[in-house]
Amino acid sequence: MRALPLHLDAGSDVRRSLEQLALTQNAGGFVLSVVGNLSQAAFACPGQAAPTLLSGELEIITLQGTLAPEGVHLHLSFSDGQCQVWGGHLEYGTLVLRGADLLVGLLTDAEPSPAQTAQPGVPRVEIAGLPGCPYTRRALRMLRTLGIPFVELEPSGGESVPQLFIDGVAIGGYDALAELHSRGELDQLRGY
């Protein structure tokens, strides 16, 4: 592991900055520590359809999660002027107020990610569902609308449908797919 300090100036978008770091370093890793403040925080709360936005002088408490050239998955917590703590999934639009200093741990001998080892032209998404199931139809419509190639499977007996798999790993049903979409984590699966 290599520890890399990262200073973010006023106005920097925290998520975009970390995505750019992972791309330019061509490495995965995680946030080791952070101090700083924000003028605006954009974060996804569980079960909400759209990100929450808070503005003001906000103090960063924690930022943790993973980053890779394919994207980031980070959770933020921060306090407002009344010391009320907020937090959730980090979204675009989280802006630095005066400055933020991070220490990022980059993995130097990381295994290639599924996105890096995927064979061109072979869909990474599989879906097992039933034609008459409304949730199967919704999942199929979402995949088609987003331009994500997929393979349809026969459902195995006794399981609820649909069942979705990304790179062979079960992610759950339609709700899990919708949650990944709301966090922008399906973007890397679009027609490649």
Rank of each mutant, 00 (worst) to 15 (best):
P120Q: 04
S156K: 14
V31P: 01
Q64A: 12
W86S: 10
A22P: 03
L177E: 07
F43V: 00
L53H: 13
Q20M: 11
F43G: 00
L186V: 09
G99H: 04
R141G: 06
T145S: 13
M1G: 12
I60M: 10
L54E: 09
G81D: 14
L53M: 12
V35H: 13
V169H: 09
G11M: 04
L74Q: 05
P51T: 07
R15T: 01
D175T: 10
P51G: 01
L107D: 14
E57V: 11
D187N: 12
I148A: 06
G65E: 03
V151C: 10
M1F: 10
A50L: 11
D109N: 13
R98L: 14
D109S: 13
L90A: 07
G147V: 06
E57C: 09
R190N: 03
P46H: 02
Q119M: 11
D167W: 08
T136M: 07
E70V: 05
G191I: 05
M1C: 09
L106R: 07
L6E: 08
V122T: 15
R183N: 09
E19Y: 01
I171K: 00
E126H: 08
V104W: 04
I61L: 15
V14K: 05
L21Q: 04
A3M: 10
I171S: 02
G129A: 09
R124W: 04
S156E: 15
V151P: 00
C83L: 14
I60Y: 06
S33A: 15
T117K: 11
I60C: 03
L74P: 05
T145I: 02
V151H: 12
Q163M: 09
V35A: 15
E154V: 13
Q84M: 14
Q48P: 00
L130T: 11
I171V: 13
A128I: 06
G129N: 03
A100L: 03
E185T: 01
A42C: 12
Q20C: 02
V104S: 01
E179K: 10
A170T: 08
S12H: 08
G11R: 02
P162A: 01
E159F: 11
Y135F: 15
G36A: 09
L143I: 08
T108A: 13
P5H: 06
E159I: 03
S182G: 11
L90R: 02
